[in-house]
Write a protein that binds this DNA or RNA. Structure first.
Length: 562
RNA sequence: UGGGGCGUCGCCAAGCGGUAAGGCACUGGGUUUUGAUCUCAGCAUGCGCAGGUUCGAAUCCUGCCGCCCCAGCCA
């Protein structure tokens, strides 16, 4: 990583520091990022990716990419590919170390046999419903399954036949024999293998009809890969005793340490894969990469730079406390990165035609404009100026509210990178709507202030005859409620979808230099915000997405004044 | 009311017995041909609450209170 920032420490890094000081694992650090390929990666995963890969980088360790693919009914290869693409795009590289839990199916099977031989696992014939009844409740202990004391030989035989496909889905499961009265529900003889016929696994095809469960698979996969620190979110804290139980009971050479941290809660978004899947499947958004989605693919299309997302993950920290991060933090990271890297351009989103009456008809000239006000190295560009221009309707008022410093009737304003103009006349149509402004310019104000008066306002513009027409998509938060999940009685998160999360402007005018851009390019449209070129963009049909607005203190003043 | 966690500024978050870092947000000033950027200043006598130990407590002890997670053959 070429980040210049020094990573902030956190309790996990402290644990690793102590482990290294104690020469635990011979000072080796090995982490892993273990996504299940049943959906796209989102901002919450980004936190985990940055943590795991970030630690590996900083401790000269390794971080494996491992697909937790033990549930063929929900997983598919499209998600595998998308995940790889997104992790790479975020800026991390797993080298040759991409693994699949399914790589270990054979070993896992052997481990299960080992457990049976130790009398620590048994085949259970209870139906799913019965299993639930036998499990007990939070306050009541469960009771032993009638199949709990089957002989080792019978268990071995039954388990082999499960694998051979002799039983139907749900007919039998393999369970760990622990303690049906444990106060920790996870220890009440958890399932470790279930039967799944008819699924074509994206890696193993139809080779298996039994699949291992998460708790059994995860700790052993970590162990097999020699992971030292297995980082996961808080909801797995209750699973840690089980994680350790399997590794203690089985003969393994490596017993990784599971450490839990709290998952990211970001205001105005959801990070439940189930719910994100619903948004896609119900057509509430275009797809997984819809710029409004909190997915990595969505943020990419929205124009968020990967460095900004990494910076965000750095700033929010890693703790075990419940958190509630404001959207402003993420947006600020995006602005900070783009402010430095995005070349400036001018684009008029809500065009209002103006005619400079004292500028000769048919004439035009090229004005030089810097690509970045603070960075000369980014160079300059030439933009055409002529008699007919477009400015934004927002930048003109017939009567100025107080503190308004843009164009008003009879008033002057600076055209960015060009001359000072005055509005002499307002032309309206039959309905009373303003359709054009007649103005005059002061030829002696190029790169200098006018004589004897102060012009405070500066607005952007484009030359009508040279501008290119484009579609500009203005995105806003997908939800109008900071906690979409906090639905009231009978409601659900979709009730809080923001109906104005996408505003498509089809008649925008951009300065001519924007004609040759490529998808993925970032620009600041001065005074409007940061925009990026959409993947669907073409020279014939230019499409830009608004990544984020500029900070807008005028909007706040206006709001305050009602 | 079983078990496991968490409670420090509006939001994140340092702190680990020696008298409350930092970031975001916010407020005010300066620079500015982006009401942007940049910059300067301000912003917790207080650390969920109540007791206790101590010369000294956000940090240790006790008891409360609040919030989150767990009863998938999901991960």
């Amino acid at each position: 990583m070429n980040d210049e920032t020094i990573p902030a420490s956190n309790f996990i890094r402290s644990i690793i520091d102590a482990d290294i000081a104690a020469n635990k694992n011979q000072g080796r650090v090995a982490t892993r990022f273990p996504p299940e390929p049943n959906g796209y990666l989102h901002i919450g995963h980004a936190k985990s990716i940055c943590l795991n890969f970030g630690i590996a980088e900083d401790y000269q360790g390794t971080c494996n990419l491992r697909f937790d693919d033990t549930n063929p009914h929900k997983e598919n290869i499209e998600f595998v590919e998308a995940i790889k693409r997104d992790v790479h795009w975020l800026g991390y590289d797993w080298g040759e170390r991409v693994y699949y839990a399914s790589d270990y199916f054979e070993q896992l099977y052997d481990y299960a046999v080992q457990l049976i031989k130790k009398g620590k696992a048994y085949v259970c014939d209870l139906t799913p419903e019965q299993t639930r009844e036998y499990r007990g409740t939070l306050t009541k202990p469960g009771k032993d399954s009638p199949y709990r004391d089957r002989s080792m030989e019978e268990n071995l035989d039954l388990f082999a036949r499960m694998r051979a496909g002799e039983f139907k889905d749900g007919e039998k499961i393999l369970r760990a024999k622990i303690d049906m009265a444990a106060s920790n529900m996870n220890l009440r003889d958890p399932a470790i293998y279930r039967i799944r016929h008819g699924a074509v696994h994206h890696q193993t095809g139809e080779a298996w009809s039994i699949y291992p469960m998460y708790d059994f698979t995860h700790c052993l996969s970590d162990s097999i890969e020699g992971i030292t620190h297995s980082l996961c979110t808080l909801e797995f804290e209750d699973h840690r005793p089980l994680y350790d139980w399997f590794l203690d009971e089985l003969e393994v050479e490596c017993h990784p340490q599971q450490i839990e941290f709290s998952r990211l809660e970001l205001e105005y978004t959801i990070t439940s894969k189930r719910k994100l899947t619903r948004l896609v499947e119900e057509g509430r958004v275009e797809d997984w990469d819809d710029p409004r989605m909190p997915t990595i693919a969505g943020m990419r299309r929205r124009g968020y730079p990967p460095a900004a997302i990494r910076d965000f993950c750095e700033r929010i920290g890693v703790t075990k406390s419940s958190n509630n991060v404001e959207m402003g933090v993420l947006e600020n990271c995006v602005r900070e990165d783009l402010n430095v890297h995005a070349p400036r351009r001018m684009a008029v989103l809500h065009p209002l035609k103006i005619v400079i009456e004292n500028y000769p008809e048919g004439q035009s000239e090229e004005l030089e404009a810097p690509n970045h006000p603070q960075n000369e190295e980014m160079g300059t560009r030439r933009i055409p100026f002529s008699r007919e221009l477009y400015i934004d309707r927002e930048d003109f008022r017939e009567e100025a509210p107080k503190k308004f410093k843009r164009l008003v009737t009879g008033g002057e304003v600076r055209l960015r990178n060009a001359y000072v103009i005055r509005c002499d006349e307002v032309i309206k149509d039959g309905a009373g709507d303003i359709i054009e402004l007649r103005c005059s310019y002061d030829p002696d104000t190029l790169s200098k202030n006018p004589e004897g008066r102060k012009v405070k306002g500066v607005i952007h513009w484009v030359s009508a005859g040279h501008a290119i027409a484009a579609e500009v998509r203005l995105y806003d938060r997908l939800f109008s409620h900071p906690h979409p999940d906090a639905a009231k009685e009978g409601g659900e998160f979709t009730d809080h979808l923001n109906p104005e999360s996408l505003l498509t402007l089809t008649h925008c005018y951009l300065e001519a230099t924007l004609a040759d851009v490529l998808p993925g390019g970032h620009f600041q449209f001065e005074r409007e915000g940061y925009f990026c070129v959409d993947p669907d963009h073409s020279r014939e049909r230019p499409i830009f997405n608004r990544t984020v607005t500029l900070r807008d203190s005028w909007a706040r003043i206006e709001k305050k004044n009602g």
